[in-house]
Computed example of a mutant assay.
Amino acid sequence: MSRLSRPLASLAAAALATLPGVAAACSTCGCSLNSDWASQGYATSRGLHLSLRQDYFNQSRLVSGSDRVAFGSIPLPSEDELQRKTINRNTLLGLDYSFNRAWGLSVQLPWFSRYHETWPEGETTLSSSRGQGIGDIRVVARYQGFSPDAGLGVQFGVKLATGTFKQTFDAGSAAGELLDRGLQRGTGTTDALFGVYKFGYLSDSVGYFGQAMGEVAMNARDGFRPGNSLNVNLGLRYLDAGMFVPQVQLNLHGEQRESGAFADRANSGATLAYLSPGLGVKLGRRVDAFVFMQVPVHEHVNGLQIEPGRLWSAGVQLRL
Rank of each mutant, 00 (worst) to 15 (best):
G260F: 01
L152Y: 11
L8R: 04
R101Y: 09
G278C: 04
G210E: 11
V158C: 02
L193V: 13
R265Y: 02
E121G: 11
L62S: 00
W37L: 14
Q40L: 03
L183C: 10
S147D: 14
Q132M: 09
V295L: 14
G223K: 08
Y42Q: 06
N219W: 01
G210Y: 05
S173G: 03
L92D: 15
G200E: 13
R319Q: 12
A261Y: 00
T44P: 02
V107R: 10
P110G: 09
F112T: 11
L126K: 09
T28Q: 14
L279E: 01
P110S: 13
F156K: 00
L95N: 11
R185I: 11
F165C: 10
K85H: 15
E123M: 04
Q211S: 12
L92P: 12
D96F: 12
Y97K: 12
N233R: 08
Q155C: 07
K159P: 07
A261I: 00
G135V: 10
F199A: 09
F290T: 06
M218W: 00
G133A: 11
F146S: 02
M218V: 07
P308L: 04
Y238Q: 08
L183G: 05
S129Q: 05
R138H: 05
G145C: 06
G21L: 04
M213W: 06
A289C: 03
R185E: 13
M218S: 05
T271I: 03
V287W: 10
G210K: 04
L48P: 00
P77A: 04
F262I: 01
D67N: 10
A241R: 01
S60V: 05
E79S: 15
W37S: 11
F169E: 09
A161P: 14
P7I: 12
R114Y: 00
D170S: 11
G163E: 13
S5L: 15
F290N: 12
L183D: 13
P75A: 12
H298A: 15
V297A: 09
S203L: 07
S78W: 04
A270R: 01
A12Q: 09
L252M: 06
F292R: 11
E123S: 08
P296E: 10
G309T: 12
L178Y: 06
S276Q: 03
R101F: 06
D222A: 10
S51V: 00
T164F: 06
V316H: 08
D240P: 02
G223H: 12
L50A: 10
K85R: 15
L50T: 03
H253W: 05
T189R: 05
R286P: 01
D288Q: 13
E255T: 10
D36E: 10
G227C: 07
G65P: 02
E81C: 01
L62C: 02
V154K: 07
D149L: 11
Y201N: 15
F57G: 00
T44S: 05
D170Y: 04
V63L: 08
L272Q: 09
D204I: 00
R130H: 15
G104C: 08
D80P: 12
A171N: 07
W111Y: 14
G235E: 02
S147K: 11
K85F: 13
E215M: 06
H116V: 11
T125C: 04
Y208T: 08
S39I: 03
L283R: 00
V22Q: 10
T187Q: 08
